[in-house]
Design a protein around this nucleic acid. Structure first.
Lengths: 325, 325
DNA sequence: ATAAGATGTGTAAACGTTTACACACCGGTT
DNA sequence: AACCGGTGTGTAAACGTTTACACATCTTAT
């Protein structure tokens, strides 16, 4: 059994209340008592039990981070930022990875509630967007994806605008048949599709089509191969995520398509290879660190003041133009 | 204030002890009581408070995961595996990222102890290897890096053997001046350096030298540029991590060195670009998922039986030979 | 001199569980 | 009839904190 405040009190020759007060820095304490307690704490190497604190206070200093795909560098980077901010505020991070499985997501939200986390950071799956009931949950901040109509703190990037910008880099070129490959039924994918389509205003004939697939590398490759086969006139491609892009790029290479050499390939995220394949690939880089920090900050504020007005932060993606070598 | 076992007892018309027993499935309970409790639980939507459970049981169902670099895909993959195994056993994961900072590491270990985690998974920084005192810590399992002399459960890959294999792929070729770029002062780096050096037995003159740098992309680029400048005879390179490799590869490309085209570049990890740059790059792929699973399994067992004999699991890296296109 | 406030400390209750213990009832053996 | 083991249930203590409340002492103002 580990050291408790009782042991400290015994050693310091005072009551547990005094110890607690010294530790919390609250209320009136004589210098003498403070001294004694502090040396006792040091000598014993006492550290408070956060579990007991949580029970007593009816809230913990733990926040939940629910990720849809931790292996995605975008989310890794977010995790890192979140953890740093949380740590800075004295919070720890309970992490879970749903792999986009809505069932796992709800299971986890329940677990988080059972653990009495102080708040939750969530990038919700589309499937749960409707059913999720924030009223029974701890303070909740959404990131990367928002839930339309829900009155929740949210941090997203302007996906529509980003897709628009990215697509325009192609429209500025001589490409005549531009295809878009997007993730399947996610909030993010929808917004990017919208931006992609809007970019073609007044040049609708240059849009070859919108393709959707689960965001895996193999799927990107599969869809790209399919497009090449069915629509051989394709001369440019916009990819909506690093994973899809990696697959699609490989498929292009394998097929010997001239799209790569002609710089007709652009994508979201900034996969490490984009900068040094030949020719390099123009991308939209998502401000993942900024997003993680903003979301964590928002959550800290929300925890502190549950009544504060809801805010929605929209970050801009950064176009990294690698048109010329 | 949230629902407690008391509310359930009230609703079911029995004592809290009975409710607890039904929930735990322990002791004698009449079918009638079980019925009543179960419906009460369902109707109220009661969920147990894990914090209270932890306090009472003097241990939580949370494990700590201390990562040195969450943005490293190797560790992301490990995180994912760990989280999956933990979740499967009813545990949640408290995650922290130290960015290789020993100070942060000890701070975190303290926090973990305060949170009364049931166990900890740790890839220790070199700096703390000596000072770390497992006797005061919860059950501890090391992964990726071991602490020599410490009697602790550990999961590592056979870095020496892996480096040996990787280097031999070059020695089988006609390269005469092979450089090795490794991370700075980590357990892993040391082992890989050993393997690298051993590979040259009987062919010492073909080893150009061992270079070390912090495992960042820019450092890889810097060191590679330096080597090219000071040792222009270099005709092959072994890189000890994806990050270093990415930087080094870029530097090679930039310099116009023929090493890339001559397939004189090999590395650890399997960065996504390795498979489709031209020519592709031969690598050692680390079994990250297996490592994460093994470490988490080990921790579960250790938690269950603190007295069980210590085990050390050594996994093998997989050589992915991409010599021919 | 007395009241009123400021200062300092201790006792005990509470947070939501689990569980040792006590008790009560039942059926079956002696 | 007395006893026993197997069932079933409730009471209360414990886990380690924080904090309301009570009380005591000291200072200052009246």
């Amino acid at each position: 059994m580990s050291l408790s405040i009782k042991d400290v009190a015994l050693r310091a020759g005072c009551s547990i209340a005094t110890v607690s007060r010294v530790l919390a820095g609250k209320g009136y304490i004589s210098d003498e008592a403070r001294q004694k307690v502090e040396t006792a704490v040091k000598e014993l190497g006492y550290r408070p039990n956060r579990v007991a604190q949580s029970l007593r206070a009816q809230k913990s200093r733990v926040i939940g981070l629910v990720l849809s795909d931790i292996r995605n560098p975008f989310f890794s980077e977010i995790s890192r930022a979140v953890e740093a901010v949380a740590f800075h505020h004295g919070y720890t991070v309970l992490m879970c990875n749903t792999d986009e499985d809505p069932k796992r997501e709800v299971q986890f939200l329940k677990l988080m509630e059972e653990e009495k986390v102080a708040g939750i950071l969530l990038s919700p799956t589309r499937a749960n967007a409707k059913t999720l009931d924030p009223s029974v949950l701890p303070p909740l901040v959404l990131f990367d994806r928002k839930i339309a109509g829900a009155n929740l703190d949210t941090v997203v990037i302007d996906n529509e605008e980003a897709a628009l910008k990215l697509t325009r880099t192609l429209l500025g070129g001589r490409y005549q048949k531009i295809a878009g490959i997007f993730g399947a039924k996610s909030f993010t994918a929808s917004a990017r599709i919208k931006g992609f389509q809007n970019a073609f205003q007044g040049a609708e004939e240059r849009m070859l089509g919108v393709y959707q697939a689960p965001a895996f590398e193999e799927e990107g490759a599969r869809v790209m191969a399919e497009i090449l086969k069915k629509e051989p006139s394709v001369d440019a491609v916009v990819c909506s995520s690093a994973l899809l892009a990696t697959g699609a790029y490989k498929a292009l290479r394998q097929s010997g398509s001239p799209i790569v050499a002609e710089r007709g390939f652009v994508c979201f995220d900034d996969p490490s290879w984009a900068s040094f394949v030949d020719p390099p690939v123009t991308v939209i880089r998502q401000p993942a660190t900024a997003m993680g920090e903003a979301a964590a900050d928002l959550l800290m504020k929300r925890i502190e003041d549950p009544a504060r007005p809801v805010s929605e932060i929209v970050l801009q993606g950064e176009l990294i133009s690698r048109g010329a070598r």
